[in-house]
Write a protein that binds this DNA or RNA. Structure first.
Lengths: 224, 224
DNA sequence: TTTGAAGTAATTGTATTCATTAATCAAGAG
DNA sequence: CTCTTGATTAATGAATACAATTACTTCAAA
């Protein structure tokens, strides 16, 4: 599926439904009948179906064949799985970025880190989340790996969804956002071990996995 | 999309097309018109379309909206990306598997390793590839992370596709298959560093990335 | 010979209609 | 009172018909 300027109807429907879900206008567990959406858009069910398959693939809705589709629900375990996958992505992205990323690339990354810090100071949750997401997406882009970038994009949807559903406490926001700067600094210094360490801790904290895995579990230390 | 026993038509079509592509009955670059497939199955285009969207998402075909769909093509860079992603998956799977995998789990893994070795001795390429794929899929399963398992499944499709297109030399097959045993041994010993090291080397070799990245690049060594 | 434009064919995108499945509810038998 | 059975309803799944876009061909003009 290449093309960005295709004038097919399923794309705007997809975008709209994503937006509805991420803003909780469609709540987890809520059913999403094709006919209803079709009516809302004034189009047929055909493009709706296509959009919904994509949503299902993104993990934002569950489709029960011959029965119904509903906005996805998730539990703590699933959130942890998302976190684990993101750590895996970011760790690899960091390795690749250090190998063939330019300092200019890292400067762009730094911009998102700054934006994130500023949002934390302003106590602007939405802005902070957006910057955080852009930071990790940019990191994926710098990795030069299309698949990682695509995957990170999909993961970001899940993360936005989770954050929308769970009102995370923003107490330690500043520290979290500061972690981004430490990652960037390590990247510029081409210090893989340090970058991976900061990124991993940042994410472990973000996903509250502290109580599941021992400290340093994902940090690739030598001594066990 | 839950359910395995749904009697929808797109699923068998999807399976069939996957098979056609992996056996090169449909070659890279070859066009896949909806009407033609529909005629072959004696059904309408509707389920065909659905199957093809899924194929597109799996990276097995490219859909050019309003124009045509063709079996995907790929270059060395893309193959490397697949390899990098697989390394990322396997590394995380190993960490998680060591954390909450049972010895019984690792025994099952060993079975696939055995099967792989035997296939190498028998010089049975197809069997070896199947065992290799099952090995990595089982590892993903043991990780306990649904997302990683799903991703590994999708990655396996790409890998089968790549292997079908590129006739890899089976010279060092025995060594490669032996790597699986070393991974299993390390897992049983709960030696993460060693398991990751063997897995990474195995994959770097498998994807011929030796000439792109320095030795040990993905191995999480302490001293840079 | 090449180029461009018009008309035609081929293919995809969407709407509509029909078929099938499954959930709900009511009624009747045990 | 419970369980089964059948009708009703609401939803999805698939087929067909139609629309729109793109590719192809042909022919004429430079």
């Amino acid at each position: 599926m290449k093309s960005t300027n295709s004038s097919n109807l399923s794309e705007p429907v997809y975008e709209h439904l994503v937006n509805m879900i991420l803003t909780l206008q469609l709540k987890p567990g809520e059913r999403v009948p094709e006919a209803k959406i079709a009516k809302q858009f004034g189009i047929s069910r055909t493009p709706i179906r296509e959009a919904m398959r994509k949503l299902s693939n993104d993990g934002l809705i569950n489709i029960y064949p011959n029965r119904y589709a509903e906005v996805a629900t998730f539990d703590d375990t699933y959130v942890r799985h998302v976190g684990e996958l993101r750590i895996a992505m970011d760790q690899m992205a960091i390795k690749l970025a250090i190998h063939h990323g330019s300092n200019a690339d890292f400067m762009k990354l730094k911009q998102y880190a700054d934006e994130c810090s500023q949002a934390a100071i302003e106590d602007n949750q939405a802005k902070r989340i957006r910057a955080d997401i852009n930071f990790h997406l940019e990191l994926a882009r710098i990795s030069g790996n299309q698949l990682i970038e695509k995957l990170q994009r999909e993961l970001n949807l899940q993360i936005e969804f989770i954050l929308a559903c769970r009102f995370i406490n923003v107490d330690d926001t500043y520290m979290k956002s500061h972690a981004h700067h430490e990652i960037v600094d390590a990247l510029i210094a081409r210090d893989e071990e340090r970058a991976v360490r900061f990124a991993s801790r940042h994410l472990v904290e973000f996903y509250s996995m502290d109580d599941v895995y021992p400290i340093g579990f994902f940090e690739n230390r030598q001594g066990k």
